[in-house]
Write a protein that binds this DNA or RNA. Structure first.
Lengths: 131, 131
DNA sequence: GTGGGTGCAAATACTTTGCAACCGA
DNA sequence: TCGGTTGCAAAGTATTTGCACCCAC
């Protein structure tokens, strides 16, 4: 984990991710950063996102299609809209089942649990009822 | 959903998936079916897996890397090994939080919840301790 | 100066798709 | 026969990587 040098690009990616509420894909971040650094390359965005995931500064959310990234480290769940694909944070507290499951289950060391909810988001519901 | 005609290939894919305990990728299924039908193409495997997911006969599991498929429809959770990437079924009953969350949350209609556990599987734990 | 970081483009991994031939009802 | 299905290959999408140059320390 040593040998991490400062870079404007990485800093910018970090800031971008912290300042937005959605969970952008690498490409969305790329588009955003390009406004400040028109020469940044998509490869650099991917490289830095991977680095930040490794250091634990951000989280990667694997869904259908492109991966999404999240700078909110507070434990929370995600809601994935099956209609538009958006990802929403759910700060609703749900008792963490990790300890209990780790006790009951003999096949591996359980370290983390993610809840993933699927359904239709408010916007899509509204659009549907108008159509 | 009408107009689904029988095909040996689809039948074979269905059987393959039902007979194995792991959660194979399209490519693993392709390799397996090829022993019986050497001429089957990867495209056909993908097409049929999509069809079976649409009709609800199988489930798609999106993880890092290639998608995996699961013929077990009984509600259950998955354990994903961060070391070898294997996916294990966890039949441990966890109270379904969908209703409660749908009641509390105002941003969308919650229809489904998936628990996803991460950690290190038994095999990898063993290998690690031997090294 | 040195090693990590960058832009670029090529390569990779996974999945979808167009098309003509084929097959089940 | 008719329309769904297949094999093949090409295309598409998402991500990674090799390399020469650049910059922070």
């Amino acid at each position: 984990m040593a040998g991490l040098k400062y870079s404007r690009q990485r800093e910018s990616i970090r800031n971008c991710l912290c300042s937005r509420e959605d969970h952008p894909t690498a490409d969305m971040i790329y588009a955003s950063i390009r406004q400040e650094y028109p020469n940044i390359s998509l490869g650099t965005v991917y490289r830095n996102l991977s680095l930040l995931v490794e250091t634990g500064e951000i989280r990667k959310i694997t869904t259908d299609g492109a991966d999404r990234f999240d700078a909110t480290l507070t434990p929370h769940s995600h809601f994935i809209c099956k209609s538009c694909g958006c990802v929403l944070d759910m700060m609703i507290p749900i008792e963490d089942p990790v300890a209990e499951v780790d006790r009951l289950w003999d096949e591996g060391d359980v370290e983390e649990c993610r809840f993933e909810f699927r359904g239709v988001c408010k916007k899509c519901r509204k659009n549907k009822s108008q159509a």
